[in-house]
Amino acid sequence: MKTVFTRTATLKDCPTHYCPGCGHGIAHRLIAEAIDELGIRGRTIGIAPVGCAVLAYDYLDVDMIEVAHGRAPAVATGMKRTNPDKIIFSYQGDGDLAAIGTAEIIHAAHRAEQLTVVFINNAVFGMTGGQMAPTTVLGQVTATTQKGREAIGEGYPLQICELLAVLPGAIYIERCSVYNPAQVRKTKKAIKHAFELQVNGAEGLSLVEVLSPCPTYWRMTPAKAMEWIEKEMTKTFPLGCLKSFELTK
């Protein structure tokens, strides 16, 4: 029999704590595959956020650190500046990166830190019970926007990619999703590219935003959640590469 698919080495063989249909697991696998395909496991250091993915080090078999809520880009800066030969990535949710850690991500990009950021936008604070995130779309019902989010008073959805793309220090910014296999493949390519840039010493920050399902707090079935990303979420967060950086061969 021919093996057509296996678990990649950097993804640990263990049960997951994520809810059924959660997007975090998919993103973890894509990161692990990118690391293994680039052969950088031995020199990669990952940063886990505060959020549902706080235990990312239980799944990703690289050196990892867990940091204070939102501070990953600052921690990453401390690591990369002192270890320019290492590959440093942060994995952050939308509460972590777009609410409490907005200053840190903007300034890491602004300083052109050579980092790879995987930004999981699931439009809610998953870990604390599905409250509004800066990325919650207008009209979306969450634990803290029970009548649906209204722009005035609760704010407009924060478009991080658009915000970062204008900074010269951000060199590669792409928004992807995982709502179907084709999108998963695109996301994989983007994540791998974001690592590749760092491996090749490209001078700036790379960020891949992943529109990711949280069926639990969207109160949807996993299938419905995927459909909601495609039909609804992408209206506020259009997919695509906002800023590209090609490596000269």
Partner: peptide, 26 residues
């Protein structure tokens, strides 16, 4: 050696956190 003027003290102490975690004196 490394010098970074951080965007805040919040960031500064977390940069210390990162550098220290890799075994550096910081």
């Amino acid at each position: 050696r490394v010098f970074v003027q951080s965007e805040s003290e919040l960031a500064a102490i977390n940069m210390v956190f990162g550098a220290s975690a890799t075994g550096k004196r910081t």
